[in-house]
Computed example of a mutant assay.
Amino acid sequence: MIKITTDSTCDLPYHLLEQYDVSVIPLGIVKGDRLYQDGINIHTEDIAAHVDAGGDITTTNAVNIADYEDLFRTMTARYDAVIHLNLGMGFSSCYQNAKLAAEEVPEVYVVDSANLTVGHGILVLAAAEAAAAGKTVSEILAMLEDMVSRVETSFVLDRLDYMKKGGRCSSVTALGANLLKLHPCVEVIDGKMSVTKKYRGSMEKVLAEYVRDRLAGRTDIDTKRVFLVDTCRTPGLVDVARKALLADGRFEEIVESQAGCTIFCHCGPDTLGLVYLRKK
């Protein structure tokens, strides 16, 4: 049997992780002078309360080599092989650490998702489905290699103060965006984040426009499944995006998921994104 493992940044809903017996190793979250484990002893509401009270932005820590090695040794004692899917190497050293750990443990295969949140998770789910269907290691790795470049991940931010506190944008940029009610659309391209568009207005208006923009006139989208991932605290925002997806009507399945602490640290509340595959 093949075991699928992954980082907490995959942001897949718990019921899917449980259904396919996917083991998740948490990234570290640093709040104040204490190290927490993503989704274990710290959650997004804890980070939001800390920042709202004037606290410094929380930061993230990659999983270390020793923890990966412990995970891999535990799983290879019970399974024929382990395939571990990492948060993209452009965002963290998790992939490099997992690769070094895998050198010490036979039959462990590490895959760079080149993505984040459910852009990473969509690959985890595909690997887990393939493993459950009895595919071999080589078949699953070939499938993932084909899929990585076809994952389309984008999201819209409501506010930039988390990005500013984390050093990912300037104070002037954040202030200007807030004054003008600008909401950047960020897309993962070639393993890196890029701002591809800026929306203006209320988040309700922006999210409806964003979903339409991502899908309008597209004939290259694999319509089997779309992920709707968010950090929304404002009531109704997810409903707006869901309604726009349902109005489009092309997707066989809409999977909704909440982004975890690692993503929340950088994006803050009321961020929402879409993830799907492009056709071959």
Rank of each mutant, 00 (worst) to 15 (best):
K3T: 11
D11G: 08
P13E: 04
H15L: 07
L16Y: 04
E18D: 14
V24I: 10
G39W: 05
I47W: 10
D52N: 13
T59W: 02
T60Q: 02
T60L: 05
A62K: 07
V63T: 09
V63E: 06
A66P: 05
D67P: 00
E69W: 10
R73H: 09
T76G: 06
A77D: 15
A81M: 10
H84N: 11
M89N: 02
G90N: 06
F91K: 10
L100K: 15
L100P: 02
A101L: 15
P106C: 01
V111E: 08
L116I: 12
I122H: 01
L123Y: 15
V124R: 05
A126R: 13
A130Y: 09
K135F: 10
M143I: 08
E145G: 10
R150I: 03
V151Q: 02
E152R: 06
S154Y: 05
F155K: 03
V156P: 06
L157P: 00
D161W: 00
D161R: 04
D161S: 04
Y162V: 05
S171V: 14
L175N: 05
G176R: 00
A177I: 11
L179M: 11
L179R: 06
H183K: 15
C185G: 07
D190F: 01
D190N: 13
M193G: 09
K197H: 15
K197W: 05
Y199Q: 07
V206H: 09
D213F: 03
A216F: 14
A216I: 09
G217L: 05
R218D: 03
V226Q: 05
V229D: 03
T234D: 09
D239A: 15
A241L: 03
G249Y: 02
C265V: 15
C267M: 08
G268E: 04
T271H: 03
G273M: 02
G273N: 04
